[in-house]
Design a protein around this nucleic acid. Structure first.
Lengths: 133, 133
DNA sequence: AGTGCTACTAGTAACTATTACTAGTTACTG
DNA sequence: CAGTAACTAGTAATAGTTACTAGTAGCACT
């Protein structure tokens, strides 16, 4: 599990466009959405390139992956935060909560894991729009 | 999002075998593992039946789904608990932690969700075996 | 501003996990 | 112990993602 030497990464126009598209929204889009979006400025881009660009940006720590129910969503917000997922419309909302320091220590103790590098906390419920309907 | 009337569910030998296989382990297997396992007692079972049985058991609340990195894992432990995921070997371990009552309220307040029905908390780190290697 | 190295791209095929379809079977009700 | 609807095996289809290949284009160094 050694970190691999961060090999040179070129900032091609495709990757810039993918990053810009992700940064243009506060939703949590999937690769297909990014593809549609980026095609407006780069009509010739291929879906494979979108996937590879997303992977490269994740490697560089510029974006976050958010695996969710059979697909991967992406998030340009890389500050620590959690998510609230609507069980009806599946939209994902950002949620800033105080850090789980106590629970973190407790988790390390009870899991037997020597180190815990991260956690993920998702809440599930009905968003305002779906609760109204 | 209304609960659908719980329609009659038959406890066929295929479903019993799927449930028994899941209950025989404290790991968090995927459908393919269950398929291999169940084939030892029911060699003619089809993978599709395993998927449908798992879905039926989830509907009945007898098992839990645990979507994880592009596939769905299953857990026969339906008591409330969290998970510690090894970032090296991908194994998933159960982790019992005190309930997040405070954070729960905070999440409801900050998310604007009218109700929050569940949450999911995963910790990521190196399991004992992988940390030793 | 050229030249060369190598990461990159488009396009397509392949792959993995899962779901849908169909004709025949079987568990439960009466 | 018969009727019927939910089920099953087998196979095809689908969704999301990754791999492959031949050509392209950033970037370092003249």
């Amino acid at each position: 599990m050694a970190e691999k030497a961060p090999k040179e990464m070129r900032l091609t126009k495709q990757r810039q466009a993918v990053l810009a598209a992700l940064r243009s929204t506060d939703t949590h889009p999937d690769a297909a959405w990014v593809y549609q979006e980026v095609r407006q400025s780069l009509p010739g881009i291929s879906l494979g390139t979108v996937y590879r660009s997303l992977a490269a940006l994740v490697d560089q720590g510029l974006i976050q992956e958010l695996p969710q129910e059979g697909k991967v969503l992406y998030d340009a917000n890389i500050t620590p935060h959690q998510h609230a997922v609507c069980t009806s419309c599946s939209r994902v909302f950002d949620l800033v909560l105080p850090p789980l320091d106590q629970l973190y220590r407790e988790a390390r103790r009870r899991s037997g894991f020597h180190s815990i590098s991260a956690y993920r906390l998702d809440f599930y419920g009905l968003c305002q729009r779906c609760a109204a309907a």
